[in-house]
Design a protein around this nucleic acid. Structure first.
Length: 259
DNA sequence: ATGTCAGTCAACGACTGA
């Protein structure tokens, strides 16, 4: 069973690349972020023609998240329950799998902009609400994965140049604490379950030839509850789509679970 | 400080967010 996350930075622009990647990678469950399209603009026909079902939460211009799957989604949740946040950043669904009910949560966490921006406390507060809600979810669902663009590089090894990035947004200690609090619920960063190449990243700025210089960050993650982490036998960044013409600035991350 | 995308608005070049 393959679980994936990919920030596509406009599904409208990236749709051909998403369809191509689905046919090559054949993931079973995919979380997409930054759709940047309104709810009624989702390209459902093309996704279905590629053999996938979809549930999504669209927003014009900004944010927007979707789950693509080979099997139907149940008990769909849109945004953090009880949240009046107009920003569309979370979608969750349950799937019937050979392992039993499988809860798949897909998040586009706030960027934060900079430490002195009002978007920075918004980001930290958003993580607080996410963590609170997720602790309840984990009581209900033993098989839970939460994937997405967290906009946090958890450790210096996830940063191409830790000195330059020290105390910057995406890397700052309060953000890393928020990420550790998530893990503290009993989740595992599946990428770090395995030996990985040094300087493994999932996002590279469009500017300054960052991809060619591998000047990136690892900010896209697949977190797994204990029963799933025990069955996980691989997690990789798939850099191939980042080499496309007109790529997203993020690459997909794919974890493989034995069923 | 900078640079590069994508989207909007409104009218093709500004702006915002990442």
């Amino acid at each position: 069973m393959k679980l994936a996350t990919w920030n596509v930075n406009s599904l409208k622009v990236r749709l051909p690349q998403v369809l191509e990647w689905l046919s090559i990678a054949e993931p079973d469950f995919v979380g997409l972020q930054e759709l940047k399209l309104d709810q009624d603009k989702f390209p459902l026909d093309a996704i279905q023609a590629a053999g996938y079902q979809a549930v999504w939460l669209g927003q014009k211009t900004y944010n927007g998240v979707a789950i693509l799957s080979k099997i139907p989604a149940q008990d769909v949740v849109l945004n953090i329950p009880g949240d009046d946040d107009p920003q569309k950043r979370l979608i969750a669904a349950t799937f019937d799998t050979p392992l039993g009910p499988f809860r798949f949560v897909n998040v586009y966490c706030p960027n934060g902009q900079s430490l002195d921006s009002e978007k920075y406390p918004y980001k930290l507060a958003w993580f607080d609400r996410l963590t609170k809600w997720l602790s309840d979810e984990l009581k209900t669902y033993s098989n839970l994965a939460i994937v997405g663009d967290y906009n946090i590089a958890p450790a210096d090894e996830d940063v191409h140049d830790p000195k330059r990035w020290k105390d910057q947004v995406l890397v700052s200690e309060p953000e890393r604490e928020a990420f550790r609090r998530l893990l503290g619920l009993g989740l595992t960063d599946s990428f770090r379950q395995f030996d990985q190449p040094e300087k493994s990243f999932s996002w590279w700025d469009y500017r300054l030839n960052a991809y060619k210089r591998n000047a990136g960050l690892r900010i896209d993650h697949v977190l797994l509850s204990k029963p799933l982490a025990d069955r996980c036998h691989g997690c990789v960044v798939d850099r191939a789509p980042r080499e496309n013409e007109q790529p997203s600035d993020h690459a997909p991350v794919v974890a493989t679970i034995t069923v």
